[in-house]
Design a protein around this nucleic acid. Structure first.
Lengths: 213, 213, 213, 213
DNA sequence: AATGAATGAGCTTTCATTCAT
DNA sequence: CATGAATGAAAGCTCATTCAT
């Protein structure tokens, strides 16, 4: 039974998408992908030359777009560092928008890149992203705390925690929501909760400190 | 040199703990565990009858304790459902305390159960826990919203999101912190951020609604 | 653009010739042959029913001609055995001429048959040929040694060696030379070296023997 | 059924030796090696970490010894180039001795390295060796021809041919003889035949040339 | 006739598990 | 009890051959 080539290529892609999303790169099985695609295992290799390349074919587009967008944000953050300008949460909005925008086109691919890429060249993307969030939060907190150049150990731990949980939260939302508008609303709410919460936390701490002194 | 049986059993357990924590159940290798334990791979099977059972031996204690504690919380939640009593965030505190308490005794085991159990019978624990958090948050919101018996789709999505991100955040903290006091402080901060944030969100929404009417 | 059938058949043949010559039967790839022939891999099978049969189609003509010629030589050798006639090196000249003659028409095919046929029914041709050379040399040596009917073990080993190295040398020349005149000259030189060398060896040995007795 | 480790290692080595000798590296099958060794295919990998490494384990010892010996010969040849000293056939004797000496310890391994190593890092050893023989013969002929610095195209072809056939002849002897003393005798005879033959050829040609002028 | 997608057996390699010693 | 060699199923991948179009 002969099917059009692009048809099969897509079926393989779909099957792989689902397998990678469910199992992660390492645990994914080419035979299972083949079966799910209704194709023999050997035939996959007419379309994608290896498991790695199949993964790449899925993730690269989103990664490229992601890289472009993130570079811009990085650049702005660097600039504001140099110009001693006050960093504000608008950068989060940028990251958020980037991710949500990417999500609209590449929802599963984005999740795979962020959450299921252990064993591939993308495995550090999430932690790089967390690092970026960390450096933004760090800058915000430094500004608030006054003229210090380094965070206290406590603040470091706090910022670490916040960047981790915010990133992980965002990734979770990407993973669990199929629909773009719902996602955007949830992301907005999620960020609102975090901004408000962080604000409250910092003010409380500031009050505590004043009270102590 | 003869080594006491329990000694060996513990060495294997320790090695497995570290391997499962680092690699997760599926990627963990019995050979590496054996090597790290200073034991031959075959000998593991005199102490634990399979990879799964070894995983079990590590996770079951924390799971049992966890189950007992969670059942109580569940029970209280159920009760308050029936008694129409108002649920308050104290339940979160219970969950938090339970996890932090468990963490004191079983820090790695807890992380493994929650984050590294894909492929085992524990793989749903986290989502069950999320479900519990969901039902608490749901109840809270229902109370706030008035006498409704079911959440609106929007509120459902919101509560789903909040329970997910809070759970995931907590799991992350458990995973990344070796030290109990630091952990507790971070958990407190994390929950504070979330409570405050959620409060702010709800009030804002309430205001918006009133404004609309 | 329609290509005539014979045209395609030839293109495949040419491509296969080159592939078999370079890679040998087993390492040859039908896909590469197809590609080199500018033909799809499936289409090869309309002209040649299998890899083996394609190989056959290339080698059989030279094999048949070779067989005819060799049978004659064989026959002469047999005859001279029976007639107790003295065998002389002219038979080598016959073999040489046969090979060089075949080479003129079938240079690559001959090389393939002799050197690249492992895994096919022709894989023994070279050793059969060596056997023929052996029997000629054997007869020559028997004549020289006197009236013996079997060679001594030492002479057997010697003749074995000489027939092997001469055959292998010839095959090498066939393999490495594209051009007929160069080939013929080299073959002449090669055989001259061997004849002279063998003569010198035998005379020396004869002298040694006489000296010993 | 448990057998001593070294026993199995040897059985695998023996089976591999035989398989590589018969089939060559590429065509050799790990499954067949396993079967011939009376071992399951997986078990080979406890002893040798890959097909390539198994091949290496067989060939490396002979290659190392070979390299040491050949470097010395190379060195001598280079020296005599610089010192403008006349090169004499003693270098062949060196090469011959080296190969025969190696053969005594590593008969099959040597054959495998020289004749069955396509696809491995040893695949160029034979042609390197042929190149060495070429450069010796070239030097000899240059000396004979007078003061020329490069061979004429005809002489080049001749020397090419002679180095090829001599090398190939030697390799053949290594391949076909299991017993060291027999081999040495045959090699001696083979080289004698070639020396005498080459001498005769050169003198004849010299005569021809004189006659022509 | 021709295409090239599809097949499926076979390849090397890994690894949880078993078992003779 | 302990060893570690052995097992065998399954992984990713290749390739001669088939067959629907």
């Amino acid at each position: 039974m002969q099917i059009l080539k692009e048809d099969v290529r897509n079926k393989i892609r779909e099957a792989a998408l689902s397998e990678f999303k469910r199992e992660g790169y390492l645990q994914a099985s080419m035979r299972r992908i083949a079966q799910a695609a209704g194709v023999t295992s050997g035939n996959i290799y007419r379309y994608y030359e290896s498991k790695e390349q199949l993964f790449d074919a899925i993730v690269q587009p989103v990664f490229e777009q992601y890289t472009v967008n993130m570079k811009e944000i990085h650049h702005k953050v660097e600039l504001s560092y140099q110009s001693d300008e006050r960093i504000n949460p608008v950068y989060f909005k940028n990251i958020e928008s980037t991710l949500v925008e990417l999500f609209k086109t590449y929802s599963s691919e984005l999740t795979i890149m962020l959450n299921q890429s252990t064993g591939t060249k993308y495995e550090n993307v999430k932690s790089d992203l967390r690092q970026l969030v960390y450096s933004i939060l760090e800058r915000v907190l430094l500004t608030i705390r006054g003229e210090e150049t380094r965070l206290s150990p406590e603040d470091h731990a706090l910022v670490q925690m916040l960047s981790s949980t915010m990133m992980e939260g965002l990734c979770l939302l990407l993973r669990d929501n199929e629909e773009g508008d719902t996602l955007r609303k949830l992301v907005d709410q999620f960020l609102f909760v975090n901004y408000q919460g962080i604000n409250a936390l910092i003010h409380q701490e500031t009050r505590k400190r004043s009270g102590m002194e």
